[in-house]
Design a protein around this nucleic acid. Structure first.
Length: 663
RNA sequence: GCCGCCUUAGCUCAGUCGGACAGAGCGGCUCACUCGUAAUGAGCAGGUCGGGGGUUCGAUUCCCCCAGGCGGCUCCA
């Protein structure tokens, strides 16, 4: 929450004094990003500035540029949008128009979807409404509850509703009205900057069983500067869109021949992926995980036992019906079997566990698999690498004795966070997803215990913890790690789920020290979630300029002229011996062109060599940011590059932070 | 799955109000140039205009269906 300088708080004494007047009298700013747009009373309620208390009270100014202030501006802007739409499309009925993150929307019931041209016209009309010459309309609170013809003005929702009329400044005539809870900016002049973004269909009240309305989305800010910053932020997000970078850097593609949501990785993408996986493997070995493998298809029985088929059949590829035999007359002589593509790894791991008797001495048993799974995602949701129909999970299932849970969860959480940090993500918060009352199995007591155990582990981490009621899978609660990327966007990364149900369904046991059979508790844990998705997130986080250890090509030798190629080949050979992925660009492009090419390809180290370098047994460094260090002795250069790569430095190398004693 | 929009060369995009061999830049290939830190020049190749059907004398252009993509909604074990 932004708390602007000069926040004004004022005590109102005497009935009938408007909050806005009191704040103005107390010196609250009336213009600019700090302008008071609404008031907050001492109970935290947001109130119109026109509101007048019935008893003595204290109100604080809510600045335009605060989170609440922006929400109010956006909400008011949504009203202006609705007014403009009804002005241009008198038959349009109104749905709801709330503020949302970074903007607002308003849903309309209209005969036909809005076109691009419609949006342009609507935006123009909105601008007119906001600043119709010197005399803007006022958006004023009119207390006319119970006096509303709801067939005219569509009901918005439950709760306290008031009619807001937009009044003409001079005549006082109501030019437009909408039902709303408020509060609003005192006049439309307090909507300094907005932009309509797009229109799209949306289900009425968010349920796909309801008819669709046409939604217009927009954004609004406390100043033109903040709007511009926001638009630039969107442009930057588009520039670093992993789908675009994937093509530009020749990393992966989605051939239409394969099908929607199914990616192929090209050689360069394959290198990145292999590095990501190999490092993860190494860390898992160190942390006591054992590696297992399981097939991509299975008979349906496995997923009936696990319960997935009951809950998630819609999200699975439909079965192949195999091995059925019919007699001459068409009777089924041998019933067939349904085989399913694997949507989850965990049932297979239960079978690994169950393949022999288990002792308490083996626990916690940590099984890990880079397991490819296939899910029939709805056609409208497939999105680049972040939402696919075929993906590889870095999936681990840990079987513990109940008493081992707290310790295991704690070390697991720090393992997960440490590993994410090693890939360069370091800004996290946790989410605790609790039971979905419509979709769960297991007793209340077990859910209660599992949820509390997870909550404890989450709280011990010291990270911010956000509740996600109803977000759990059917078999148990989960903690998810949300990571913020370089643009401040959050992505759900790792999940840790507790499961008492699966061990029971699969009748998993271990023999405890007293010889009795006991049931283990299972922890499900995905770290990247899906490799593909994590790949996409990292690409966007780094804007394609991957850390050197992940970069497909780590160094390129660029000769000034052909005669310097040989020298660079020697350097490359030395680098290769140290495990560095290096190429020498011996093409007949000019040197400047080569620098451009490999800079565009985001190669972290460019090693130039001309006559001076060859003579001195040196190379000259050029980095992605354009900085350079010339005349570095070859041995030192090789050490610098190899050291940087092997240390898995995540920042982009630049002249300033490379230890090169250069000329 | 639902709504809207989109699909022209490997990539990014012009263009065709239904009519002649469909254009450009980048990329690729060839040749010349051998150059000190983000684009040397010239030439060549490359497209059944996403696929199928329909309307029409004639369809890349209009209509329908399908596929793929984009933006939302819904969903996400």
């Amino acid at each position: 929450m932004t708390v602007p300088a000069g926040t004004t708080t004022v005590a109102i004494q005497g009935v009938g004094t408007m909050g806005g007047q009191a704040l103005r009298d107390a010196g609250a700013p009336i213009g600019g990003p700090d302008a008071a747009v609404v008031a907050r009373d001492d109970s935290g309620r947001l109130l119109d500035l026109a509101w007048a208390p019935e008893t003595d009270t204290t109100v604080a100014a809510v600045a335009a540029g605060s989170d609440d202030g922006r929400s109010v501006i956006r909400h008011s802007c949504a009203h202006v949008l609705a007014q403009a739409v009804q002005q241009l499309f008198p038959e349009a009925k109104l749905g709801i128009g709330p503020p949302v993150t970074d903007g607002f929307y308003y849903d309309f019931d209209v005969d036909r979807p809005f076109t691009q041209d419609d949006l342009v016209a609507i935006e123009k009309t909105m601008r007119k409404i906001i600043k119709a010459g010197a005399e803007p309309y006022k958006l004023e609170l009119v207390d006319r509850k119970g006096d509303v013809d709801t067939s005219e003005v569509m009901e918005v929702g439950a709760g306290e509703l008031t009619v807001y009329d937009n009044l003409h400044a001079h005549t006082g005539e109501a030019v437009w009205a909408d039902l709303c809870r408020g509060p609003h900016v005192p006049t439309t002049r307090h909507i300094p900057a907005f932009r309509l973004m797009r229109s799209a269909a949306a289900y009425w009240r968010g349920s796909e069983r309801n008819p669709q309305l046409q939604r217009i989305c927009g954004t609004a800010w406390e100043s033109a500067e903040r709007l511009d910053e926001y638009l630039e932020h969107l442009a930057e997000a588009e520039r670093r869109d992993h789908r675009r970078l994937g093509a530009e850097l020749d990393l992966f593609s989605f051939p239409a021949e394969i099908g929607s949501g199914l990616a192929v990785f090209h050689p360069r993408g394959g290198i990145v992926r292999r590095e990501m996986e190999d490092y993860s493997r190494q860390r898992h070995v160190e942390a006591g995980y054992e590696f297992v493998y399981s097939p991509h298809i299975t008979k349906g029985q496995l997923f009936e036992t696990s319960g997935h088929l009951q809950w998630y059949a819609d999200g699975m590829f439909p079965p192949m019906h195999l091995d059925e035999e019919l007699s001459e007359d068409g009777e089924v002589r041998k019933p067939g079997q349904d085989y399913y593509l694997k949507p989850m790894n965990c049932p297979y791991h239960n079978l690994v566990y169950r393949s022999r008797g288990r002792s308490y001495r083996e626990l916690p048993l940590r099984l890990f698999e880079f397991g490819s799974v296939y899910r029939y995602e709805k056609s409208g949701v497939v999105h680049g690498l972040t939402r696919v129909r075929g993906m590889t999970q870095d999936d681990a299932h840990i079987y513990c004795a109940p008493g081992q849970l707290p310790g295991e969860l704690k070390s697991l959480l720090s393992f997960v966070l440490d590993l994410l940090r090693d890939y360069g993500l370091d800004d996290f918060y946790l989410e605790l997803s609790t039971r979905n009352e419509d979709k769960y199995v297991g007793s209340d007591a077990l859910w209660e215990e599992a949820t509390e155990t997870l909550r404890q582990a989450a709280e011990d981490s010291g990270l911010e913890l956000v509740a996600d009621p109803g977000g759990a899978a059917f078999y148990g609660p989960k903690i998810s790690v949300q990571a913020r990327d370089a643009l401040g966007r959050t992505w759900q990364m790792s999940t840790i789920q507790l499961d008492y149900s699966m061990p029971e369904r699969f009748d998993l046991e271990y023999t405890s020290s007293d010889g009795s059979k006991q049931r283990p508790v299972k922890i499900h844990r995905a770290l990247f979630g899906s490799i593909e998705r994590f790949f996409g997130v990292l690409l966007e986080h780094y804007a394609g300029a991957l850390p050197a250890w992940l970069a497909p090509v780590q160094a390129v030798g660029i000769p000034i002229a052909d005669e310097h190629v040989e020298h660079l080949q020697q350097v490359a050979k030395a680098l290769r011996a140290r495990g560095v992925r290096v190429e020498v660009d011996a093409s007949d492009d000019r040197m400047q062109k080569k620098i451009r090419t490999h800079t565009t390809q985001k190669v972290p180290f460019l090693l130039l060599a001309g006559g001076k370098d060859v003579e001195a047994g040196a190379v000259s460094f050029r980095f992605r940011d354009g900085t350079q260090v010339n005349g570095v002795a070859v041995d030192q250069a090789v050490e610098a590059v190899a050291g940087w790569v092997n240390r898995r430095e995540n920042v982009s190398p630049t002249a300033a932070d490379l230890p090169l004693g250069a000329s």
